[in-house]
Design a protein around this nucleic acid. Structure first.
Length: 925
RNA sequence: GGGCUCGUAGAUCAGUGGUAGAUCACUCCCUUGGCAUGGGAGAGGCCCCGGGUUCAAAUCCCGGCGAGUCCA
């Protein structure tokens, strides 16, 4: 079946007495030393045989196993690399979380554009896979968080050049040899190990791959990434697409740290092997105890469930029935025994996931990785409450963070506490809502419909089972549909398509043939004049695009706006209105044509540029100060500079208080006052990463082997912007304000240098104008404003009172109104040019005296109020309708009190003249 | 980045175009020796902001701001 069969004819196999066989159960091809073997070794063809029968000589903890693995590969010529963050979106924008060790080197290293940090290398990379979150705890082997131990080698073909690494380090046979040797050193019985042929396809790449199985457990996958999708390729693989060989070929291996540890211990589940003390703590805390007989059932069930090929939760539920049957136990009894234990396994795993996430400084939020962290945390909290563990969640997460040796454990605990509190508020809000809803439906005797459930979940974050619980207490039925989550998904399917592509594609083609523009602005960031040759000019709808051989003009990028200025030749001076970078070419957008092939002088608008430089350096300083004041989790989430101010968005889990803002401002200005050097440095990116970590990429990830670092005081950032040469040149930094731009992200707005002075002057002018208005000193403005506001409110109330009094007087004093008799009820018809409030009050007063009130006003347009005493059969709404029609409008209201009006104020009197007639009609009607 | 929900008294919320409400908390009075409590009265609102529609907007529409939530 496999088109790649010849790819597996490895020297190591033939030299070490392996034979290729086909599994009698599944038909898959595999390699083994055991001549008599007939099955491939992988469940369901075979079953776990290491439970209570560890497959290695010694028992290892995860820490010991990690160290054993890494040092083995170090001894075999690999460099040990520190793990990358689990937040993969810090260096690539196509995924959120790190799901495999190879993610660390995609896309730039695997494509050959950037050299790997070492070659070959070994690493133990923390990974998080949310896909099988529902299986965690239930199958005995699924975990959301795990470490993928790996050895990688990056190779290029002999005839290929222009890649960041050259030649072959090692390939398939050597890879298998390393794996086999490691298993041998661990004391595995090599006769029992099988190597299954299983070509790998994913993400546009493919290649032969081998699964390494021992005693039923898949211990490693050895992937030989060497092909890319190509419609004309010579290989057709299992996804139905065609592939062809690439110039680079990469050894991508994955050894599950947790599985190796499990194999070495032979415990019933993986969880008991990797964090036994936490499992013990949780069981004890939740008060879970078993009799010997129960213990035996659980033990057997765990072993059996490991043997089943379980891939989703439905299978787990079905499998439980099979297991119960095999053990001769009632399925409900088995469920009651296992469920609390499953929750505990899941809690331990989720806490470890959170420790990785928060330890790598992900801040919970409603977007991106922050949202995933929040989901995991809330899920964990539910499990903890469900199973009756009463330890605070921050303590549980800390247990795992401690084991993983994170240094920011205080912040982690703080974040967890804040999140738990936030969740509690959401639940409070939710339960109030559900209670109310439940009572409504209970009263009508109807069940809560699934549309309400979807609404509650989607808009308010309330789980259907929680609705069920609360609603039942209030006597309302709830039927949670089986396809609940697909109903929720349906609501999101109406989303609009993405908009069309830009024209950048064509542009970049046009500029591709031009040489890279030499960037003078990096050579001397304070120079503003230069000379250059005009290489090309493209005419445009609204101007010209000019390309020079070298330029001092800074193109828009990294949140710094483009420079302005002029490009002059002897004949022509062109204003530069915008500057953009297209590939390696810098394009100046101008208002006139300097002439292709001309020798030109460039002049950068120095004032504008200097303001940008101050704001750019100030941004680094403020970021650094914020990190010092608020904590190490502070990370840039976006930034924009202008001539007048700059803004910096940072990740933070609560809003910034006024006190904190002042402290940040003080710390930032201390850095300015210390007048330290701001240096730029071009360095090898791998060296930079090794020395400073990923925190240098807060403003985005630049391409290329060399990157530019900016050192401002103790802060180091990869940055392409222009900077002042000493922090003192920033002058002064004035923080203008802070706002929460989204959950988990806070925006700081500030101004530097003369812009700071201007900003201060602006606020002071506002204060002065306000003070002048009140005719008081600056100090007295707040209390004066407060007094004015209070008095304004008091006066409003007094006016209301007076209007009512006036209305009473008008109603009783007869006034100049006409009074007619409608079947024994007196009706007062009166013009009264006041506002609606006055009309209403007067009408009310008249009704108190058992009169019908028909009042009209011409104060702003025409307005009418008609009020009728309780027992009078006149319909006020009808009367108002008739009156309003006569002034070109309309009106209505309840039968005893109606309002209306229209635009024709001059017809108020005419309308009122008709009032007696209308009243009589209304009575007849 | 997108979808949805919500902004009304100090708190929790009613109010679907026609005179801004309830409960708790608050103040005062009464009941009691005191407390829990019970009875009565009162105070407290830029109905988030800005436009629009309308005779009339807390209410409908548009735009902001703020809060929440689901998804990628």
């Amino acid at each position: 079946m496999s088109d790649l069969e010849e790819e597996y004819q490895l020297g190591y196999f033939t030299e070490n007495g392996f034979t290729r066989k086909e599994c009698v159960e599944c038909g898959g091809a595999f390699w083994t030393r055991d001549e008599g073997r007939t099955t491939c070794g992988e469940p369901p063809c075979d079953t776990y045989s290491f439970i209570d029968n560890p497959g290695f000589d010694e028992s290892y903890t995860v820490e010991e196993m990690r160290e054993a693995f890494l040092s083995f590969f170090e001894e075999h010529g690999h460099d040990r690399i520190a793990p990358y963050p689990v937040a993969a979106n810090r260096w690539r924008d196509d995924v959120l979380l790190t799901q495999a060790s190879i993610y660390d080197f995609q896309p730039l290293v695997t494509s050959g554009e950037t050299p790997p940090p070492a070659n070959p290398l070994t690493i133990s990379q923390p990974c998080i896979r949310m896909q099988d979150i529902d299986n965690v705890g239930k199958t005995g082997r699924h975990t959301m968080a795990f470490e993928m131990m790996a050895h990688h080698a990056f190779n290029t073909r002999e005839d290929a050049d222009d890649y960041a690494y050259e030649g072959e380090v090692y390939w398939k046979s050597k890879t298998v040899e390393h794996c086999d040797t490691l298993l041998g050193e661990m004391g595995a019985d090599l006769e029992e190990v099988t190597y299954i042929e299983d070509p790998w396809v994913g993400g546009g790449n493919a290649g032969p791959a081998i699964e390494v199985i021992y005693r039923g457990l898949e211990l490693a996958t050895l992937v030989f990434m060497s092909m890319e999708q190509d419609p004309d390729g010579e290989y057709e693989l299992k996804d139905g697409n065609r592939y062809s060989k690439m110039d680079t070929y990469v050894v991508d291996t994955g050894y599950g740290l947790e599985r190796w540890t499990w194999m070495s211990q032979g415990t019933p589940t993986v969880y008991e092997a990797i964090y036994p003390e936490m499992i013990a703590f949780l069981k004890d805390n939740a008060g879970i105890e078993y009799t010997d007989e129960e213990e035996a059932i659980i033990h057997d069930a765990a072993r059996l469930s490991g043997n089943l090929d379980i891939d989703d939760v439905d299978d787990v539920e079905a499998a439980r029935g099979d297991i119960a049957a095999e053990l001769g136990v009632d399925v409900e009894r088995l469920r009651t025994l296992l469920e609390p234990l499953e929750d505990i396994y899941a809690i331990a795993d989720h806490c470890r996931t959170l420790a990785y996430m928060l330890g790598d400084e992900i801040v919970p939020s409603n977007v991106g990785t922050g949202y995933l962290a929040r989901m995991v945390l809330r899920r964990t909290k539910r499990l903890v409450d469900n199973v009756g563990v009463d330890a605070p969640l921050d303590e549980l997460v800390d247990m795992q963070a401690k084991r993983l040796s994170y240094e920011n454990r205080d912040t982690i605990r703080d974040v967890v506490r804040t999140e738990v509190e936030r969740y509690r508020e959401t639940l409070d809000r939710g339960s109030r809502r559900v209670e109310q809803l439940a009572e409504e439906y209970a009263q009508e005797g109807e069940p809560v419909p699934s549309s309400e459930l979807v609404e509650l979940y989607d808009s308010h974050g309330i789980q259907p089972d929680m609705v069920e619980e609360i609603a039942t207490e209030h006597g309302a039925d709830v039927a949670v549909p089986d396809d609940f989550y697909s109903l929720v998904a349906q609501r999101h399917n109406d989303e609009t398509e993405t908009d069309s592509e830009s024209e950048a594609g064509r542009d970049s083609e046009r500029y591709a043939e031009l040489p890279a523009t030499e960037r003078l602005y990096y050579e001397d960031q304070s120079r503003m004049e230069f000379e250059a040759m005009v290489l090309e000019v493209f005419e445009h709808e609204d101007g010209y695009d000019v390309v020079l051989d070298q330029t001092m003009f800074y193109p828009e990028g990294g949140g710094q706006p483009a420079d302005h200025g002029s490009i002059s030749t002897d004949e022509e001076t062109a204003e530069v209105l915008d500057v953009q970078q297209v590939g390696d070419v810098i394009v100046h957008h101008t208002d006139s044509n300097p002439g292709k092939g001309e020798f030109a002088r460039g002049q950068v608008d120095a004032n504008r540029r200097r303001r940008h430089m101050r704001h750019h350096t100030a941004t680094h300083i403020v970021g650094h100060a914020t990190r010092q004041v608020l904590g190490d989790h502070i990370r840039q989430a976006g930034a924009q500079k202008s001539t007048d101010s700059a803004r910096l968005d940072v990740s933070h889990y609560e809003s910034v208080s006024a006190d904190e803002l002042e402290t940040i401002e003080r710390v930032a200005n201390e850095i300015v006052t210390e007048n330290e050097a701001v240096d730029q440095e071009w360095v090898d990116r791998n060296e930079a990463e090794a020395e400073h970590g990923f925190d240098i990429y807060q403003g985005g990830i630049p391409e290329g082997e060399q990157i530019r670092l900016i050192h401002a005081s103790e802060d180091t950032q990869a940055c392409g912007g222009t900077h002042v040469s000493r922090t003192g040149e920033v002058g002064v930094i004035k923080l203008l304000g802070t706002e929460r731009v989204q959950d988990g992200v806070v925006r700081l707005t500030f101004a530097a240098g003369e812009a700071a002075i201007e900003a201060t002057q602006r606020t002071e002018r506002l204060l002065s104008e306000t003070a002048d208005l009140f005719d008081v000193s600056h100090d007295e403005v707040p209390e004066t404003a407060e007094r004015f506001f209070r008095e304004w409110k008091e006066r409003g109330k007094r006016i209301e009172e007076l209007k009512e009094e006036l209305a009473a007087v008008r109603a009783s004093g007869g006034g100049d109104g006409e009074e007619v008799d409608i079947e024994g009820t007196p009706a007062v018809i009166q013009r009264l040019d006041g506002d609606m409030d006055e009309l209403r009050a007067t009408a009310n007063a008249l009704v108190e005296d058992d009169s019908i009130a028909v009042l009209g006003s011409g104060a702003s347009g025409a307005q009418f109020v008609v009020a009728v005493p309780d027992d009078c059969p006149v319909d006020a709404g009808h009367v108002v309708g008739e009156l309003s029609q006569r002034v070109g409008g309309g009106g209505g209201g309840p039968a005893d009190f109606a309002q209306g009006g229209g635009p024709d104020a001059e017809k108020v009197d005419d309308a009122l003249d008709d009032a007696p007639e209308i009243l009589k009609q209304a009575l007849d009607a």
